[in-house]
Simulated scan of single mutants.
Amino acid sequence: MNNLILAIKDFFTFRFLAFSFVPLIVSSLIFIIVFKFFINYITNIDFNEEAFSFFLGIYILHALQILIFILGNVFGAYLSVNLSIIFALIIISFLTPLIVKAINLKHYNYNKLDEVSFGYTCWMIFKLFMKFGFLLFCVLISYLIPIINIFSSIFLFFLMFYLFFNLLMIDVASCVLNKNDFLNFNPLKLQYIMWVFLFYLICNIPWIGFFLPVFIVIFLTHLMYQKELLVKSMLIDYK
């Protein structure tokens, strides 16, 4: 619980709120502009009015144009929101070293002797996506198998958690731990699984998932410093 309080206090500071909001705002603006052009293109489509020259045809034409305008706005807004979240998550993953560094300087002053190389981290993530791709293929095949397809959605849910959990562990652990500790790191501990699964469930709630990734990184950073590196005694009280 102490880690949770620390993470909340750190999260509600200007720096970490900026880490949360800036990627989302920037990506939202980009996708809003893109879909604005998309909507304008759809609504400016020229219909062949001669095809609607029959009785009440002109009213059907106007109703069709209004329907396309409404659906275009709804569809565009939906895609803008979801794509902006994905884009923001990608940006935040690159911010993880900055977040970890800020937490370390503020609370722990832990000196890493040997950094985990960027290339090795990319190799770990590549292997993870290869495994995920194979498992995803198996899950998609299960949708075609009678009886088993009843559980396919459950399989997919936990497969996405598998990707979510391992990406977070690799991302945060590679920034917190030195090379030797990272190679010996075992993320399959009850405390890690329990907390990340809870965050995963919350991320599936619409809108809340916008702002949670930075908080998750902050929380896991505190947890790893105190549990894996045993630097709890070095903690500086937050004021």
Results as ranks from 00 to 15, higher is better:
1 M>W: 07
3 N>D: 09
3 N>M: 04
5 I>Y: 11
8 I>E: 12
8 I>M: 14
9 K>V: 08
15 R>P: 02
20 S>K: 08
25 I>S: 06
25 I>L: 15
26 V>L: 15
27 S>V: 09
29 L>M: 14
31 F>R: 00
32 I>Y: 09
35 F>G: 03
39 I>A: 07
42 I>N: 04
42 I>K: 14
42 I>F: 10
46 D>A: 11
46 D>K: 13
51 A>D: 05
52 F>V: 01
52 F>T: 01
55 F>D: 13
55 F>V: 08
56 L>R: 05
58 I>W: 12
59 Y>M: 06
60 I>T: 13
63 A>K: 02
63 A>G: 12
64 L>N: 04
72 G>E: 01
73 N>G: 09
74 V>C: 07
74 V>S: 04
75 F>I: 12
75 F>D: 11
77 A>Q: 10
79 L>G: 09
81 V>E: 07
82 N>R: 05
84 S>M: 09
86 I>Y: 15
86 I>R: 11
87 F>P: 02
89 L>H: 13
94 F>I: 03
95 L>M: 12
96 T>V: 08
102 A>I: 01
103 I>Y: 07
108 Y>H: 14
112 K>W: 01
115 E>T: 04
117 S>E: 13
119 G>N: 05
127 K>T: 09
127 K>R: 10
128 L>T: 08
130 M>I: 12
131 K>M: 06
137 F>K: 03
152 S>G: 12
152 S>C: 07
153 S>N: 12
157 F>M: 04
158 F>D: 11
159 L>S: 08
160 M>K: 14
161 F>H: 07
161 F>G: 08
162 Y>Q: 01
164 F>V: 08
165 F>G: 04
170 I>T: 08
173 A>N: 07
174 S>E: 13
174 S>R: 09
174 S>D: 12
177 L>F: 01
178 N>A: 03
179 K>F: 06
182 F>P: 05
185 F>C: 07
187 P>H: 02
189 K>A: 00
189 K>D: 03
190 L>N: 12
192 Y>T: 04
192 Y>S: 10
193 I>S: 12
197 F>A: 06
201 L>G: 14
206 P>T: 00
207 W>L: 15
207 W>R: 00
207 W>E: 08
209 G>Y: 03
214 V>N: 08
214 V>Y: 11
215 F>L: 15
215 F>P: 10
216 I>Y: 12
219 F>L: 11
225 Y>F: 15
228 E>S: 05
229 L>Q: 12
233 S>W: 08
235 L>H: 10
237 D>C: 00
237 D>A: 14
239 K>G: 10
239 K>Q: 14
